[in-house]
Each structure stands twice: as C-alpha cells, then as structure tokens.
Nucleic acid binder design. Structure first.
Lengths: 109, 109
DNA sequence: CCGCGGTACTGGGTGTTGCTATGTACCGGT
DNA sequence: ACCGGTACATAGCAACACCCAGTACCGCGG
C-alpha cells in the first residue's frame, strides 16, 4: 500500500479497532497481527499502540494487565459503554461516506 | 459533523474531488457548494482550494482560467490521464476498505 | 550461560491533511 | 457608495498514521 492508502486510513482505523474490540477483548500486538493477516500488510506496529493509548484516554475502553507466557504482560483492552456508543457513531458516519461515494462511483451526479 | 468525521475525510476527500472532476470539469467554489448540498455541510471552503492546489502540483488535473459574470475569474479544473489513473487507484483502495469494514460490521471475524 | 528470535509495549520526531481565520478582489443591485 | 454573493489564496493549527529506536520478558540452541 502507498501514500494515499495510509491517509485514507485516518479515522477509519480507530473504527476498525473499536469494531474488533466489540467482538471480543484484545491486546495491541494481537490486533496488529490480525489486521496484517486481513490485508493491512503494511500496518506499522507503533500505530496501533498509539491509537490504543488515545482511545483509552478518551475513556472508550477498559484495560486489564494480563501476564503472558511468552513475553511481557499484555494490556488487554475491552470496549465499554462509551466505546460502544462511539462505535455506533462511527458506523453512522462510515455509512454516510459509503453512500455518498457509491453515488459518485455510479456517476449519478 | 464532528471531530471523528473530519478525520475520516482525510484522503477520501481527494478521491471525492477527483470523482467529481471525472464526470465534468469544475471550479473550487462550485465543488464546495455541490459537496455542501450533498451532505458535507461543514466542509470548509479553504479545504477544497488547498486540495485543488495539491492535485494540480501533482499533475492530476489541467487548469483553465475562465472569466465569470459574477465575480473574479474561475479556475476550472479538469481531470487528465494521470488524474484518471489516480482515481482508479483510489477506487481500488476504497473498495478494499469497504470490503474489510463490511466484514467487521457483519461480525465475521 | 549467553545470545538470539519472537513476544509485547513505549516514545520521540516527521509529513500529510482538513480546519480556522483572514484577506483579496470582482460584480450587481439598492 | 455600500453590501452581499461570487471566487480564490494562505498562514497557522491539530490530529493522525508513519518511521525508528528502545525496553523488557521468555525459551531455545550453541
């Protein structure tokens, strides 16, 4: 992926992470790995950690430190009520965008 | 629209403008007005002008100055070959994103 | 036993982008 | 003569994803 793609991720990536956490709690390293498997091959590791810090500071997630068998303790994030609200809001905005762009793609205006 | 929305526009807005120019040439003031009509109510005027300057510098559009009946001359932008290529690339990335997010929304992973 | 690779998190600095705010300029109607 | 709508330009700001380097913990092979 190139320059344009990384710009397009802005804002969207947060929604993606919230959506992942909505299905079940997860920690940074795991999220990065999963996203890379799912096609975001160039995703930088530091990006996810920074994003997690941000959404934690905004109170969208709860954090629990869990010891790992294979390295330093994991910070497991889980979506709380405010996070679910934010996710709903994200889907609303996302749907709006998708709808607008579909119209543009079909050349309706 | 709020904070999240403006972040989500990043990168996408360029694709939107390219798509608009693909259907027919247009000038900045006109593009801003059209986008506002189509739901991007909070779109700042300066944003479009800055964006047009950028895509011009990257050689994606051709520019022609056309006198207006109601004000200063318009700078009419039209998509050139390179711009069409860039637009195709944009749609490819966009489709990828839409596909990923659809999967997340349907809770498939 | 010691380095090495995999796991896991952290932090500083950079570039791109959209927003805010302000300024310039042209025109017609009152 | 002024005001509002048309039309463009730009300097400064904040947010975000990136790059890069560092820290730390573990098990394994030499």
């Amino acid at each position: 992926m190139g320059r344009q793609d990384t710009e397009m991720l802005k804002g969207v990536l947060e929604g993606i992470v919230l959506a992942i956490l909505a299905s079940r709690p997860a920690y940074g390293y795991e999220i990065t790995a999963r996203l890379r498997e799912q096609g975001f091959t160039d995703l930088a590791e530091g990006t996810i950690y920074a994003l997690l810090v941000r959404i934690e500071q905004r109170g969208l997630v709860d954090v629990e430190k869990v010891p790992s068998e294979k390295g330093p303790p994991r910070k497991v994030y889980s979506l709380n009520a405010q996070g679910r609200e934010s996710l709903t809001e994200f889907w609303r905005t996302w749907s709006f965008l998708v709808e607008r762009l579909e119209r543009l793609h079909d050349g309706k205006e």
